[in-house]
Nucleic acid binder design. Structure first.
Length: 305
DNA sequence: ACCATTTGACCTGC
DNA sequence: GCAGGTCAAATGGT
């Protein structure tokens, strides 16, 4: 695979692109590895462990994001603005330390509101699993809204400090659809258990079964090229989802959800080419997100800088 | 017993 | 002051 760099591309972008290209190559290796495994090829003793490849891929993305974050933050925002999701970038990070002393026993209402967190919305005809483990923490009747809004946070908020939240609400104009607003990126990472768990996480709605696939075609916008099939579903939409029993079954493995890195960031991106984003979390850590829609592991990477 | 959900209280931003 | 967002005790399910 060859990449010729236009002269105007700065070196930092070149580095970022190189990192992403490297990540793609490693992902290809992983695909081959998994393909061989699924085909029953046990002779490949020289194969690199899948876990190593996963680590390399993630390192590659981390490096590229770091490069972009350090040097190209404005341009990253520019890319975000061109996506098909409704993206609300951060306006400031100033409100995060507003919480008072936490020594009070009853801390209800004492929280760090994230008015400026990045968010994006997604409309879906049903409440299919998005691959993450969410825990409902609130429900609110919204003014002028016929339906209550449900608030969810990542199950790993406490054990891994994952700051991702979302809220779900029926769309007033079209009650058969749900509008999900994702806020923040997932920082939880349980993916190391992934290779041994190719779980059937096909949604209760009967959508096409989702198995690990690095194929070019993403048949379902929920499908994620990375780790798509690995997350047991945990959803809480009891009242709306007809196949609630299916979900309950999946919930039985409650304490050990597998969560893909920044999976949320992949949501609803349809044919987005490549997009990366970074933001700071409440505690100052850099949270990185990689958003990829039509990922093509066979063709040259599309980097639309 | 453990974990998730419910629900009212409380806080923040506008 | 209001509406929205979050917390945590209470409650329920497994």
């Amino acid at each position: 695979m060859e990449c010729t760099w236009p002269e105007k591309i700065p070196s930092t972008k070149k580095k970022a692109i190189e990192e992403l290209v490297q990540g793609r190559d490693i992902a290809n290796q992983l695909r081959c590895l998994l393909k061989n495994k699924l085909a029953g090829d046990h002779d490949n003793k020289k194969a690199v462990p899948a876990e190593d490849l996963v680590v390399k891929i993630l390192k590659s993305f981390t490096n590229s994001l770091s490069i972009l974050n350090n040097n190209e933050s404005d341009e990253v925002s520019q890319i975000q603005a061109n996506t098909h999701v409704t993206w609300n970038g951060p306006k400031s990070e100033s409100s995060e330390e507003s919480c008072r002393s936490t020594t009070l026993k009853d801390r209800r209402g004492c929280y760090k509101r994230r008015k400026t967190a990045q968010s994006w919305t997604k409309d879906t005809p049903n409440l299919t699993d998005d691959g993450y483990a969410w825990r409902k923490y609130g429900q609110k009747v919204i003014l002028n809204a016929k339906f209550p809004r449900h608030y969810y946070r990542c199950t790993h908020k406490h054990d891994q400090g994952c700051q991702a939240t979302k809220h779900v609400q029926k769309i007033l104009e079209d009650p058969s659809k749900f509008r999900t607003t994702y806020i923040g990126h997932h920082t939880c990472r349980n993916f190391l258990k992934v290779p041994e768990l190719l779980l059937d996480s096909s949604p209760p709605s009967g959508d096409s079964s989702v198995l690990l696939s690095f194929d070019n075609t993403i048949t379902n916008k929920q499908d994620n090229p990375f780790f798509t099939s690995f997350q047991p579903i945990k959803q809480e939409y009891k009242e709306e989802i007809p196949t609630h029993d299916d979900i309950a079954r999946i919930q039985s493995s409650s304490s050990d959800y597998l969560v893909s890195p920044d999976r949320t960031a992949f949501e609803s991106l349809g044919h987005l080419t490549v997009l990366s984003s970074t933001l700071e979390s409440d505690n100052g850590d850099v949270i990185s997100g990689v958003m990829m829609g039509s990922v093509d592991f066979d063709d040259d990477v599309l980097l639309d800088f």
